[in-house]
Design a protein around this nucleic acid. Structure first.
Lengths: 261, 261
DNA sequence: TAGTGGTCTAGACCACATC
DNA sequence: ATGTGGTCTAGACCACTAC
């Protein structure tokens, strides 16, 4: 009897991983449940501990489980996502007096906290310089760095860049920039946001981001590079949002222009 | 002389990884260059091969390098991103006669290929059913699955869901759905897209997606769940786009509504 | 104190790429 | 034939958690 296909006898580590994956997906193991220990998996499958460990690594890479030092390996919870996006800059949110982040956190019954990391004059990163229309190589921008927490869990890092020549000596250099935040001050400087552009990418975090966001392995980040344009179609503000992708998503509402009759 | 901080003597694997990371970032190692082999790294640092291997794994997880069986470990190229987003549904692109994907590929001098995987009547996934406003548990939708390639490299997987009662017996069940694609047919059925919603998340790929997109380890996917609404604010189409995040990004242009005077 | 994951060593064999 | 990454074994010690 010829085997219908080569069926190359899966590797031990894959086999263990697949068995566990199936158990998770059919509900035998529920979110929060502990997996058997590496040592007991190894014994159970007649393998070395490193092999069981490799199986766990595969599942962790897929975001299915999370290892906790000294406690065990657990099936991941799938928490509801905080959602940000096209209404992050919407004027109608202004009336609530809440920033979009606080609004979204409140909507989900979570506590919001915002930490101002620093407001410094700097040389802009290349991608920011390009979009803001300032030269690179000189300290031509103000960099405001904020960290956002929901239920004291870090959720996003935001770096806002403004032109130094404009921000210099204004409340834009202060942690609390006044009514309606920096957009309020920028309007007073003659910049009304009439158009925005969001460029979205996903990638694995740098070690720095990994530490700041306290990211477990296998969780990517969503990066949004936002550019604000004023009534003269001039860019006047660029922000980089880095979200942990397992806790935050993006929502864009798109009006579709109609064909002229 | 007291050490200014505990400075807990970094782990060998981290130390090797950091040295290589620095070499990559300062340009000593350029994209495409081969790293020293695992065995020679181990010898060089007086470590076991598994330790050098772990260092490579750390870099691969960060997307900095890619291991190729039998050839070596290479610094990743940073290719320019294909960009999709708010104009994916824009009417003005219709006039070019090109689909948004072909347009973007052409813009970057890459060849586009689209493969129709299947058009089948199915039971919708829960998230799709919810958004399309159809019941789950019955085969109430048509699922069109397409794969998109740039230079014969798989870039995105698109699953489009339509209501079966509407698509039944129409060109919407055909691979080539006619002028202006499915949106042309849907307009003839009385659905003019007046609004769209894109819900964006990032995550690590499932093994299935990993295989379809031929993803190297450590590359996340960008998922866009799109819903189209017609002139009566009824949802009439839902599509799920799964992009490989190292080759595709998203671009959203946001008009900002002005406050009334 | 016992059990867990985190890391490391020192070997081994296999599969793939190159010449 | 040689060198590469991919996987595995069988041990060891450490750091963290729970009791």
């Amino acid at each position: 009897m010829p085997t219908s296909s080569p069926s190359p006898e899966p590797l031990p580590s894959r086999r263990i991983a697949e068995t566990l994956r199936a158990a998770i997906e059919n509900g035998e193991l529920s979110p929060g449940d502990r997996l058997p220990s590496e040592r007991s998996l190894a014994e159970q499958y007649g393998a070395a501990r490193n092999t069981a460990r490799e199986a766990i690594r595969i599942l962790a890479e897929q975001g299915l489980v999370i290892a906790e030092h000294g406690r065990g390996v657990f099936v991941r919870e799938r928490k509801r996502l905080l959602r940000f996006g096209s209404d992050r800059y919407s004027l109608k949110n202004r009336e609530t007096g809440l920033t979009p982040f606080r609004l979204e956190a409140a909507r989900q019954g979570r506590t919001a906290r915002i930490e101002v990391l620093g407001i410094t004059r700097e040389e802009p990163p290349e991608d920011v310089a390009e979009r803001l229309g300032v030269p690179t190589g000189i300290a031509g921008v103000v960099h405001r760095e904020n960290h956002y927490f929901a239920d004291d869990e870090p959720v996003q890092i935001v770096s806002t860049y403004l032109k130094w020549e404009e921000a210099q000596g204004t409340p834009l250099m202060e942690p609390r920039s006044g009514p309606h935040g920096i957009y309020g001050r920028l309007e007073e400087l003659g910049h009304v946001m009439t158009r925005g552009r969001d460029e979205i990418t996903a990638r694995m975090p740098s070690p720095h981001e990994s530490a700041l966001l306290r990211l477990p392995p296998g969780v990517p980040v969503l990066e949004v590079l936002h550019t604000s344009f004023d009534q003269n179609a001039e860019p006047f503000e660029v922000s980089r949002y880095v979200h942990r992708a397992d806790r935050a998503g993006l929502l864009y509402e798109l009006p579709v222009e109609q064909a002229e009759s």
